[in-house]
Amino acid sequence: TSEDEWQCTECKKFNSPSKRYCFRCWALRKD
């Protein structure tokens, strides 16, 4: 669900929880 998505701190895109990197800008997920 969208509620589980995380928001990239670099480009603000919301990504799948299973992705460690942002799909748009490839920044590593910040915990």
Rank of each mutant, 00 (worst) to 15 (best):
19 K>E: 15
28 L>P: 11
2 S>G: 08
8 C>Y: 00
28 L>E: 15
17 P>R: 02
24 R>F: 11
9 T>N: 04
18 S>I: 02
28 L>M: 02
12 K>D: 06
4 D>K: 03
6 W>I: 06
8 C>P: 00
29 R>Q: 10
14 F>Q: 11
13 K>R: 07
22 C>Y: 00
31 D>E: 11
15 N>H: 10
27 A>V: 10
14 F>W: 09
4 D>P: 09
30 K>E: 14
17 P>V: 06
1 T>R: 04
26 W>Q: 15
25 C>G: 00
19 K>F: 03
1 T>W: 04
28 L>G: 10
14 F>A: 07
4 D>Q: 06
26 W>S: 15
2 S>L: 06
22 C>F: 02
29 R>D: 12
26 W>G: 15
31 D>C: 03
15 N>P: 05
7 Q>R: 04
29 R>L: 07
15 N>F: 07
1 T>I: 08
13 K>V: 08
7 Q>Y: 03
16 S>V: 09
26 W>C: 08
9 T>D: 09
25 C>K: 01
2 S>A: 08
24 R>A: 12
23 F>E: 15
12 K>N: 09
8 C>N: 00
5 E>G: 09
22 C>D: 01
21 Y>P: 12
7 Q>K: 13
24 R>E: 15
27 A>G: 13
28 L>A: 12
20 R>K: 14
24 R>D: 13
9 T>P: 07
18 S>P: 08
13 K>Q: 13
19 K>I: 07
29 R>S: 06
4 D>M: 15
13 K>L: 12
4 D>G: 05
16 S>L: 08
8 C>Q: 03
2 S>V: 06
24 R>Y: 14
23 F>D: 13
10 E>Q: 12
1 T>A: 03
28 L>S: 11
8 C>R: 01
9 T>C: 03
5 E>D: 15
17 P>F: 01
29 R>W: 07
24 R>S: 14
10 E>P: 01
26 W>K: 15
4 D>I: 11
30 K>Q: 15
24 R>T: 10
13 K>N: 09
19 K>G: 05
12 K>F: 07
26 W>M: 15
27 A>E: 02
3 E>H: 04
